[in-house]
């Protein structure tokens, strides 16, 4: 009884939200058709979608998306490895733990994009600089969450593990990592969002200077040529990828791990 009621409630919510979004889209279409604003600056939604479709079929947007994903994958991957090594060393040595906390306090408030100018000087204007900015933007939420997560594991679980003869790496692998998993997942979510923001922002600063780029560069270039429907198309692709990754990756993992284990706060 209760379960079906809950399901019904959440279905109502989804329906409500879907209707709202469709409503906003219709409103957009109507406002654009009324031509209160110049069509060049405020294209109709239908023209945006038609344009997006042709872009997807024979345009460059697919390639740009893949390139963005490649940059983000590389930057985020590096960040995960760095964060894992840093947090583990902080766990083993209290001195390193102090250093990491100091670094987090000092560097966390610095937006990743702020380091771009100096990165360009050091690494040039190629993809390597964008990867570096993504790395810098996503590493702090990863380290912070990992650091907190590893310390959130109850002492009795650690002792139960030690009682079974676990120590060192085995203790980390079998007890600490799964215990910290709720935090790790949160860290990955925030890091993924930050990585997208950083990649788009960095490519816009590069502007047309680089010969290749991802979706950020695509949007920037299209605006340069005043192809406004494509600008919106680029944004829609970013939104869709974000939604898809949230639903298909993060939620999929969450349902099968921390929700099943009762390790979520809700």
């Amino acid at each position: 009884m209760k379960v079906t009621k809950l399901k019904k409630k959440s279905m109502n919510k989804t329906l409500n939200q879907g209707l709202f979004i469709v409503g906003v889209m219709i409103l957009w279409e109507l406002v654009a058709r009324a031509q209160w604003f110049p069509v060049l600056l405020f294209p109709s939604l239908s023209s945006v979608f038609v344009n997006l479709l042709t872009e997807l079929v024979n345009g460059e947007i697919g390639g740009r998306l893949l390139f963005s994903l490649y940059l983000i994958g590389a930057g985020l991957g590096l960040a995960v490895v760095t964060a894992a090594v840093t947090a583990t060393s902080a766990l083993i040595s209290p001195i390193i733990s102090d250093w990491v906390q100091a670094l987090m306090a000092v560097l966390h408030p610095l937006p990743g994009i702020a380091v771009l100018p100096i990165i360009i000087l050091w690494l040039g204007t190629g993809p390597q600089s964008i990867i570096a900015v993504i790395w810098f933007s996503s590493i702090w939420p990863l380290i912070t969450n990992l650091h907190t997560g590893l310390r959130s594991v109850p002492a009795t679980q650690m002792e139960a593990g030690r009682n079974l003869g676990l120590k060192g790496i085995a203790l980390i692998r079998f007890i600490l990592l799964p215990g910290a998993f709720p935090y790790i997942l949160t860290g990955l979510r925030v890091a993924w969002a930050r990585a997208w923001q950083a990649s788009v922002a960095a490519e816009m600063v590069f502007g047309a200077s680089g010969g290749e780029g991802g979706l950020g560069w695509f949007i920037y270039k299209k605006r340069f040529f005043m192809e406004i429907p494509s600008v919106f198309g680029g944004m829609i692709v970013i939104i869709l990828v974000g939604l898809l990754v949230e639903r298909l990756c993060f939620e999929w993992v969450e349902v099968r791990t921390i929700r099943r284990w009762g390790m979520t706060s809700e």
Binding site: E159, A160, M263
Partner: peptide, 19 residues
Amino acid sequence: GPGIDRMMVFQDFEQLFPW
């Protein structure tokens, strides 16, 4: 040091591995 010849059962309910 710790060993499985001496196993501890604690008071607190968090000693099981939730995963």
